[in-house]
């Protein structure tokens, strides 16, 4: 197997691997990521507990913040970039996210319709 490792690696990166940087730059990347993540987390917790913002917007805001924070983690901790060396990693991620979206979205959508047409047993009981 190891005779296969002479292939050039400079045009393909493992997931989580960074382009060659000095240690200082790498640490800085993590610090920036941590700061951004903490900021977004704090915002989420603040919004959830406050009545300063319009209440119906809170769920949307929380989800947007969560997605943003996942993005921060992906970029600063998992080093997923859009460079050509990362194509395979990003494509795999995109496929995974598509499936997650289909499963969660599909389930919620289907079950909402099912429940509307045929409520679960205990709801029928309550109606009677």
């Amino acid at each position: 197997m190891s005779d296969q490792s002479h292939a050039p690696t400079d045009h393909d990166l493992a997931p989580g691997e960074e382009e060659q940087h000095s240690v200082g730059t790498r640490i800085l990347g993590y610090v920036v990521g941590l700061a951004l993540a903490l900021l977004l987390t704090a915002t989420s917790f603040f919004i959830a507990g406050t009545d300063l913002v319009w209440q119906p917007s809170i769920p949307v805001a929380l989800i947007v913040l969560a997605i943003a924070q996942m993005g921060v983690h992906l970029v600063f901790f998992l080093h997923i970039t859009t460079g050509p060396d990362n194509t395979n990693n990003v494509l795999a991620l995109a496929f995974g996210l598509l499936v997650v979206f289909l499963v969660v979205g599909g389930t919620v959508w289907i079950m909402a319709h099912l429940n509307a047409n045929m409520p679960p047993m205990d709801q029928i009981m309550r109606m009677q």
């Binding site: 389930t107 289907i110 079950m111 099912l114 429940n115 045929m118 679960p120 205990d122």
Partner: peptide, 10 residues
């Protein structure tokens, strides 16, 4: 207790 049989099919 609110379990949902249909969710299994889904």
């Amino acid at each position: 207790a609110g379990g949902n049989v249909m969710m299994f099919m889904n």
